[in-house]
Each structure stands twice: as C-alpha cells, then as structure tokens.
Amino acid sequence: MTEELASISLVGVYSATAVYTIAFIAFTLDLAKRTAERSATVANPYVSASASASVGGGTAVLERTGTTVDAPAGRSKWVRIAMSLTVLGWLLHIAATVLRGIAAERVPWANMFEFSLTATAIIVGVFLGVQFWQDLRYLGAYLLGFVVLALGIATVNFYVDVAPLVPALQSAWLVIHVFVAALATGFLALGAGLSVMQILQARREASGKGARFLGTLPDAHRLEMLAYRLIVVGFVFWTFTLIAGAIWAERAWGRYWGWDTKEVWTFIIWTLFAGYIHARATRGWRGTRSSWLAIIGFAAIVFNFTVVNLFFKGLHAYSGL
C-alpha cells in the first residue's frame, strides 16, 4: 500500500514538473514577446498619480490608484497560458505531496526529497497567492525556472523511499518549523527575483540599454519597493523559523542554541536580511546595493538547503541520503 501510493505520488511529481516546464517556456515566451512600447502606459503610477492630483489643482481629481498598476503587461496570450499551466501543475504538485504524506502516514517533509517537494509546492503557492495582491507574473519565468530545477534535482538526486520518522523528528515543532521556513523561502525567493529585476531596470534606466521586456515592468523604484514588502514578510517568517527551531532544539537536544551548522546558517541568513532592512534605511544604500543584499540572502538560503545539508556535518542530518 505504502509503496503504491509513493509511486503514484512520484508520477504526480513527474507530471507537475513537466507541466511547470511548459509553463516556464510560456513565461519566457511572454517576456520575449513583450515590447517596450507598452512602457509608456506603465510610467510609474506611484509617482504620477500624486503629480496629477496636486498639479492638476482645479477640481477634485480623485482617481483610485494602485489597482491599475502593471495591468498592460498582463494582456499577453502567453502569460495567461503560463498562469493556467502553473495552476494546473500546482494542483498536481499538491496532490503528489499529499499522497506522499498519506503513504508515509506523517507530514511529507522528513528528508531532503520530501522537503524539496513540499517547499517548492509552498513557493509556487506563495507565487500564485501574491498575484491577488500585485501582478507579479513577470517573475513567472524566474520562479518556475527555479522550481523546475529544484524538483528535477530532488527527484533525480535526493529521492529516497518512504521511511518512518526517526524519533528525533517526531515533534509538532517539525511541522511548524519546516512549514514556516518554506513559507519564508517563498517570499524571499520572490523578493530576490524582484531585486534582480530592480538591478536590471536601474541599469536600463541609467544607460537606456537592457532587455526589451524591462520596458513593460514597473520602474526600478517600484520594483525595489515591492521587493522590500515581500522580503519583510519573508523576514518575519524567517524570524519565526529561527525561534521555532530553537524551541524544538531545546526539546530534542536540551539546548536551544548550539551553533550547529544548520543553526549557524539560519542565523547568517537572518542577519543578512536584517542587513538588507537596514540598508534600505541607510542613506547611500537604497537601490541596487540593497538589492544585491537581498540576492545574496536568498543565495544563502539555497546554499543552506543544498551544500550545507549535503556536505556539512551537523546534528541536522535529515537528508535521508
């Protein structure tokens, strides 16, 4: 029974990866097909709304702002196909993850394969959820590229058969700690994506040169602000991950903090993003410089999950490999 469910789950993972791959291609096509012409209509509404209202001066100019932002870019046929495929892939992905959990009779995040599976599902979930707040579909190619890569590596290199939880992992804190960490990763991944766009956009604004699709994106200032808001949410979740991890460590190992490699890296990441938040408030550090910090912070998360898990020695030896 367990094995059948696990293999159905694996088929689900393959299908989800395949669908995501097509979605990724569609997102990329969308970026490629966007033309700079649209940029005129997306001239920074954040600033222009204010200008028109106060300079216009005469009668009340009380337009609602904010909701129309970035809309023109969404008209592309490709982006709609890509989004539909992402949703489809996500449903398959969720189904595969849940099946894995049923097969194992526990939460599906007890080894690296399962954690990759669940974390990427949560990351895609955050990506889809965030669209209700802001249209960030232009990050689709970046995000799905990342997810396809992660899923591919996880299934090829990290796959392990279902095994019961070792006693050290039998804790409600495992559920909380890992779930929140994945949630944080989702937000910080998007924040890093926006920061990449910010750097490209700022370069384009300064030199007039750069990829064509950038013309359809919000301006550098707004990209930076969006990145900041996502990263701040991610940072709060990461703080929570850190604290939940410490509480769990206390329950399992009798000390809440022991500078274990995994703890060290969680701390490093936290400090890097605290640095990012400070940078955003430090004169001379706004813009591209703070964007780099956000990217470095996210790179540290990826590093923490891959290299630290596989090659560094520590108590958190949960890769199952």
Binding site: V264, F267, I268, T271, L272, A274, G275, H278, A279, A281, T282, R283, G284, W285, L293
Partner: peptide
C-alpha cells in the same frame, strides 16, 4: 546606520 549595517554584515560573514 552605516556602522550598524557594516557590523551586521560582518557578523554574518564571521559566522561562516
């Protein structure tokens, strides 16, 4: 702020 930022980044680096 600049010193705080520098020290934060230094702390992250020194933990490696």
């Amino acid at each position: 702020m600049r010193t705080a930022l520098l020290l934060l980044l230094l702390l992250a680096f020194a933990a490696v």
